[in-house]
Design a protein around this nucleic acid. Structure first.
Length: 794
DNA sequence: AAATGACGGGG
DNA sequence: GTGTACGTCATTT
């Protein structure tokens, strides 16, 4: 056994079981290579609160004679700000926790149990004070060529160059959605910061970045080889959790091959989660950019091309997914080369998106102090929760439990008045300035000391009283949440101050840091009102919202009364104001005036200027900026289970209204579409609705259209299995919509029901928009029904 | 009115 | 893995 000291950046932590004991694995990376350190010095535990005396409860637990229980200790802790004494029950293995806790929680003398559901690796990084994406100096023992940690300390140092691979697969798909049991992977596209720009495939393609393998199987094995040879730290994809990796896994099963991508030479695993599946490649970090982009940027569509356009400002061409197989089958030299170029582009842009977002997640990982891959999957509420769990540990607070099912249901039903949403002045408006107050919520929490422990429910309370509500917040003692939030805000201000003097990379680095702090700080309000939160407290969230309403209304009043500006819309922390032609300077004046009148660090910001907007209802509007970018909120019908013709019609209507400001032209578009539908001048492609079968047909309780269509296919001898996407058309007749759904392969243009497409597809997609520009629902419907009588459709 | 089921991205 | 989303919409029952 040799003693030694190693240093490395903490990329990930998990545990393995050796001799029935859990051993933690720290995956580290120094400036040269990746390495692994084990830690055996940690034990799983949870807390027990006693009804009467700790001693009595301790005895009762001891009397269980449960061999999984290793130790029971009395501890002094705090719970929601109050001193408590609890028992710490240590067990032999993390997987014993759920079993032992079930026994203990039902004991007579037990009041409740706590912190019984914290994943072992996360508990470990919290208790040991480790910071992922930060450097560790570890004193270890080396035996059998393995390193065992004895003492660990965190120190600050820049993140070393990490090896990052972006990948993407192309799949043969003659039936639209690829069927994993039949359709092969035809290309694997790789772009890395180690200089890789490669398309693996199994057809000869004349491009120098293409590497031709002898078969699909050989191509996948080559993919494995490249990952292991280059030893990537991070593997990124776009929707790779839900598509690329699951598809790859199914192909591997079908082909009877295994690949070992883990640093410990294990296969990658796909773990079912409520959200999207989680891909685990031991020792490496897998990050799917699709959910990240969705969480961080508000767009009407998240197809890669659109994301690249909006975020990177690059117009990228797309080979329609549906056409890939055709190009592949055609075997035309130029076609295949073109396919390969597009394929490489997909990986390239995924890589570019990674460059854009990864630094932020490195920072969030350091800030929340949980592993990068975990943090990359967290929603805002989870970021706050894990951050608070760490803070609670260091303040000796026992964390409140997550709500049980009934409690969750009760919380979800507990509604309160949220932000103020103004009923928009409906219709088309021009020259719109948008302002928002993003720092409003955190500032309110800190300024008014809003916390579960400071809440006073008393109609007659006076000091620090919440507008409209019978609550006050004591200012005697700083609350848990306000004190943490205050620290975050101050830290951010410091970083921003430093940023002013910094340059180049240093400045960028600081900018990412302040963004991470901002994201976290802005999530605390939502967190207190989030039903699944441990530190949930309805009255707190309710009070923040009440203060926010007070401030936004005040600012709207200033705009109208003091600046004579028309406010056309506002939502929670934003307001939309009409700016008179040639008076843009008023934006600055208004902003300055408002900010002088607001208390503390509460600040209004200018978000942007828009040439035109359509305001439909609360939360439903579309804006076009001066450079022609359209931002649509709440109006999109871009789902697969709508007919293409409905989606396209809606898009065209919004575009014409915003670009030309002409309801008449938009109406003309709708009339033409209706006419086309009536005259059967559409294609089957336009009217096909695609819906996925998600379980065995026999398990369906209700007979929806796609289920009926699938049953009809089954009768024709076609095997239906979960995951299949059924394309169908609604045909003429008097039965229910479902009964009239016919599989696309068995209908002709003469069969479809024009009324269904007009009434249930076209009109619902556009009528709300038309209503606000002066054409009522009944007008649209009436003019549609009078088709043969009126000029509209003749 | 309540219950049920599907959407997103990927090809 | 000591963790199971989310908010919205259409259609059926």
């Amino acid at each position: 056994m040799i003693k030694m000291i190693v240093e490395g950046l903490l990329l990930d932590v998990d545990y393995v079981t050796k001799d029935n004991k859990a051993v933690l694995r720290l995956f580290l990376k120094d400036s040269k290579e990746a390495f692994l350190v084990y830690d055996e010095n940690f034990e799983p535990y949870f807390y027990v609160f006693a009804k009467e005396s700790l001693e009595k409860t301790k005895k009762e637990i001891e009397n269980l004679n449960d061999r999984r229980i290793i130790k029971i200790e009395k501890c002094k802790k705090k719970f929601i700000g109050k001193d408590v004494e609890v028992l710490k029950v240590v067990v032999d293995h993390p997987q014993s926790v759920p079993k032992v806790r079930e026994v203990i929680k039902n004991l007579q003398s037990v009041e409740m149990i706590a912190e019984y559901d914290i994943p072992y690796a996360r508990r470990y990084v919290i208790d040991k004070g480790l910071i992922p994406m930060q450097w560790l100096r570890i004193e270890c023992n080396k035996s059998n060529n393995m390193l065992f940690a004895e003492k660990i300390e965190v120190f600050e140092k820049d993140i070393p160059e990490l090896k990052i691979l972006a990948f993407d697969i192309e799949v043969y798909n003659p039936k639209g959605a690829p069927r994993f049991d039949r359709d092969p992977i035809i290309m694997i596209n790789l772009v890395s910061n180690t200089g890789l720009k490669k398309v693996l495939t199994w057809k000869e393609i004349e491009e120098d970045f293409v590497e031709t393998c002898i078969s699909e199987k050989a191509m996948i094995k080559r993919f494995e080889e490249i990952i292991n040879e280059e030893d990537f730290d991070i593997i990124i994809g776009y929707n790779s959790s839900a598509f690329d990796f699951p598809y790859l896994k199914k192909r591997l099963e079908k082909l009877g091959v295994s690949i070992y991508l883990g640093r410990d030479k294990t296969p990658f695993k796909i773990e079912a989660r409520a959200e999207v599946p989680e891909v685990k490649i031991n020792g490496r970090v897998h990050i799917d950019l699709y959910p990240i982009v969705r969480r961080n940027i508000s767009l009407s569509s998240y197809v890669l091309e659109n994301v690249v356009k909006e975020i990177l400002g690059i117009e990228k061409e797309k080979i329609e997914g549906k056409d890939i197989w055709r190009v592949w089958d055609k075997n035309d030299k130029e076609g295949l080369a073109r396919l390969a170029r597009y394929a490489l582009e997909d990986a390239y842009y995924t890589f570019e998106l990674g460059k854009k977002f990864l630094p932020l997640y490195y920072e969030l990982s350091r800030l929340v102090k949980q592993p990068l891959q975990d943090v990359s999957r967290m929603t805002a509420g989870q970021l706050v929760e894990w951050f608070l769990l760490r803070e609670a540990y260091y303040r000796n607070e026992v964390a409140p439990n997550k709500p049980k099912k009934e409690e969750l249901k009760a919380r979800e039903e507990e509604t309160y008045v949220g932000g103020y949403v103004m009923e928009p002045k409906k219709g088309i408006k021009e020259n719109i300035a948008v302002f928002d107050f993003r720092s409003l919520y955190p500032s309110i929490i800190v300024t008014h000391n809003i916390d579960p422990s400071t809440l006073i429910i008393d109609k007659n309370c006076r000091e620090n009283k919440v507008p409209e509500l019978g609550y006050c917040f004591s200012k005697e003692k700083e609350g848990f949440i306000p004190s943490i939030l205050k620290m975050l805000i101050e830290k951010r201000q410091k970083v921003k101050k430093k940023m002013k003097e910094a340059k180049g990379i240093e400045k960028k680095f600081l900018d990412v840091q302040q963004k991470a702090l901002k994201i976290l700080a802005n999530s605390f309000y939502g967190y207190m009102g989030y039903a699944r939160a441990r530190w949930y407290r309805r009255e707190c969230a309710e009070s923040v919202a009440a203060f926010a309403r007070y401030y936004i209304k005040k600012v709207m009043e200033i705009a109208e009364k003091e600046f004579n500006l028309e406010v056309v819309y506002g939502d929670t922390d934003s307001l939309f104001v009409l700016i008179p032609e040639n008076k843009k300077e008023v934006i600055e004046e208004f902003l300055n005036y408002v900010n002088k009148s607001l208390p503390g660090n509460i600040e209004l910001e200018f978000e942007g200027f828009y040439k035109r907007g359509i305001f439909v209802t609360k939360k439903k509007y579309a804006l076009i900026s001066e450079d022609g970018k359209i931002v649509a909120k709440g109006l999109e019908v871009v789902r697969r289970d709508w007919a293409k013709i409905a989606k396209e019609t809606q898009q065209k209507v919004i575009e014409v209204l915003l670009k030309e400001g002409s309801p008449e032209k938009a109406l003309e578009i709708v009339r033409n579409v209706i006419k086309k539908i009536k005259n059967r001048k559409v294609s089957l492609d336009d009217i096909t609705i695609y819906t996925q079968i998600t379980k065995n047909i026999s398990e369906y309780k209700t007979l929806e259209p796609h289920v009926v269509a699938a049953k009809k296919l089954q009768k024709k001898g076609i095997k239906i299995s979960p995951g299949m996407i059924i394309g169908y058309v609604i045909t003429k007749g008097s039965k229910s919509i479902s009964q009239r759904a016919e599989p696309i392969d068995y209908v002709s243009l003469d069969d479809y029901d024009p009324d269904y497409y007009i009434e249930n597809q076209i009109l619902p997609a556009v009528e709300r928009i038309f209503e606000v520009v002066g054409y009522s629902k009944s007008f649209l419907r009436a003019s549609e029904k009078q088709q043969t009588l009126t000029r509209w459709f003749s």
